[in-house]
């Protein structure tokens, strides 16, 4: 009867189990669950990562999860970071206290803005990325990664609330 396998990141992170009302609701939207996983894979492990490596994507995602008070999701991205053989330097990105320098600092500054204060974004924030040598296509990749995480984090938070108040 279930239309979802339950092994996608969102269902697993929210802890939704067969038999629960939230599981039935997800099963009725099985296509959306599958497409959500596909967007996760496209943002984190694209075939052509451009100038933003899989390791950097995972490290930024882990940072965003921590900035949004979701340590369990951060652990998922820490695992992806190890899978991508992240260097010690890239691993530091995952720590919200780390600000970095040069290109890394620019990636982090945009990420911290988009993930916690998107309403404050202005033209200067994109100029700062360009000045750090980040090209237009990579700016879009960075924005999509941040934007996907904002969606995923809220979907998981909402599903957890559905279960708590079930």
């Amino acid at each position: 009867m279930s239309g979802i396998a339950g092994n996608d990141v969102v269902t697993r992170q929210a802890g939704v189990l067969p038999g629960e009302a939230a599981h039935d609701a997800l099963a009725a939207r099985a296509e959306i669950v599958a497409m959500t996983q596909a967007t996760h894979d496209a943002a984190l492990k694209p075939r052509h990562p451009g100038g933003l490596s899989h390791a950097e994507r995972a490290a930024l995602a882990s940072r965003i999860a921590r900035l949004n008070a979701d340590p369990a999701l951060a652990e998922h991205y820490d695992a992806l970071m190890r899978e991508a053989s992240a260097s010690a330097e890239v691993e530091r990105i995952a720590d919200p206290a780390f600000k970095g320098s040069g290109r890394i600092a620019a990636l982090i500054a945009y990420t911290d803005l988009a993930s916690t204060r998107p309403k404050d974004a202005g033209p200067g924030d994109i100029d700062a990325l360009k000045q750090a040598g980040i090209g237009d296509a990579d700016i879009v990749r960075l924005a999509e990664l941040n934007a996907f995480l904002a969606y995923q984090i809220r979907l998981i938070a909402g599903l957890k609330l559905m279960r708590e108040q079930g």
């Binding site: 945009y110 988009a114 994109i126 924005a143 999509e144 934007a147 979907l155």
Partner: peptide
Amino acid sequence: SLFGWANRLMHTL
């Protein structure tokens, strides 16, 4: 949640 995504693209890019 989807607009957490869309807003970040539209408003920053």
